[in-house]
Design a protein around this nucleic acid. Structure first.
Lengths: 201, 201
DNA sequence: TTACTTTTGTTAACACTGTTAATTAATTTT
DNA sequence: AAAATTAATTAACAGTGTTAACAAAAGTAA
């Protein structure tokens, strides 16, 4: 009897239609404004049917998070395979990572819990500039006392700042109880690498 | 007539009492669960009074964002002043940045729009491990072909990953229409520095 | 002191959100 | 055809940010 199979197939179709409607919403207005009601409206069913296929809203977002990481993994593996030298591979992976993030902003923001709030907010915060200046002036001093005096200080500031923020936010996501000492080693590693490449003499 | 001054002073006190109540809420349950109603409840006033002092909820969060950047800037300047050599300053600033972030998680998450959603989500995503493996195996290969064969590959993976994520997310926040080429230079700069320090031979 | 004006605060509502219990409609099985 | 199971809906609960309409208090002027 194939009717059981048909039922399973229909259930699967229903599930994907929910995900499709949800994704359209995400693409249209960002994942912050995704709502169960809008999904229900799009698929022309009542609200509770969605809860027959997903435990809650979080489960739907989790689905996209998984999808995103899978796509990213595929993209990285793909460019890695185009090179043989590990250094070239690391460089290619880095560029592919970057490209994925900006070609799939919604995925990326979802995957790493990047909220839009601060994006609108942070740009109108003059206090951030005072922080930037502490970093920038120090980097300028470092460059002035180095061999390559014509290094772009603003570029280096961005690199420095990005490394710091990356280290912190990744560590906040992986909030596993790793010992503090080990965490700080990662910081030490990244930052000393940066400084060394900055003040070559 | 000092009554006008008193009024201004009272208004100022009211304002700070709102912020204090709000901050207690943030510390208690995270800034995601801050609500106007809870603030109103805490200060024992009705809801609309809050809108006499702040345009909306966003304005309250913006206040904390400013506060956070000011505190961070002060902390960085403070440790910078304890050193004279720019390299030492950059290292000290990095550690101070890190310490600030983890001693003031609520501030930091607010400042950079780090949502908790993914934090809970991302840790149960096995797909992330497949992405990690692409990076890790490549780094292992790179180490194997380098001079320092006993480098901690897991440490280097974290560094690599953090640099990439930092670059991307900072760039997403500063969404000013900088040309793509310039953006990619920052990536190139950071990543080539990392690779160079990895495959010294 | 009384009358008027301005400021301040409250009630009640609107338009949303996620989630779920109770109920009806449709389908399958007996 | 009747009973049992499954599917879908209505309606509600408990929240959220925000605001219009109104009442109370305080300051000003006659």
């Amino acid at each position: 009897m194939g009717i059981a199979e048909r039922k399973i197939r229909q259930k699967e179709e229903f599930r994907t239609s929910i995900l499709e409607a949800a994704w359209l919403q995400v693409l249209a207005d960002g994942w912050q404004s995704l709502s169960i009601r809008k999904i229900a409206d799009a698929i022309e069913y009542s609200i509770p049917v969605i809860y027959n296929h997903f435990e809650n809203k979080e489960a739907i977002l989790l689905e996209f998070t998984k999808e995103g990481f899978q796509k990213l993994a595929d993209a990285l593996q793909s460019v890695k395979d185009q090179h043989t030298d590990p250094s070239a591979q690391l460089e290619a992976i880095a560029h592919a990572y970057w490209d994925f993030a900006f070609e799939n902003k919604e995925y990326y923001q979802l995957m790493f819990g990047l909220g839009i709030p601060a994006c609108d907010r942070v740009n109108q915060v003059v206090e951030m500039k005072t922080m930037s200046m502490v970093m920038i002036t120090t980097i300028q001093d470092a460059i002035a006392g180095s061999k390559n005096r014509d290094v772009d200080y603003f570029l280096k500031y961005h690199t420095y700042f990005s490394i710091l923020h990356g280290l912190v936010s990744i560590q906040m996501i992986e909030k596993a109880g790793k010992p503090d000492a080990e965490k700080k080693m990662i910081l030490q590693d990244a930052i000393s690498g940066f400084i060394n490449s900055l003040v070559v003499r």
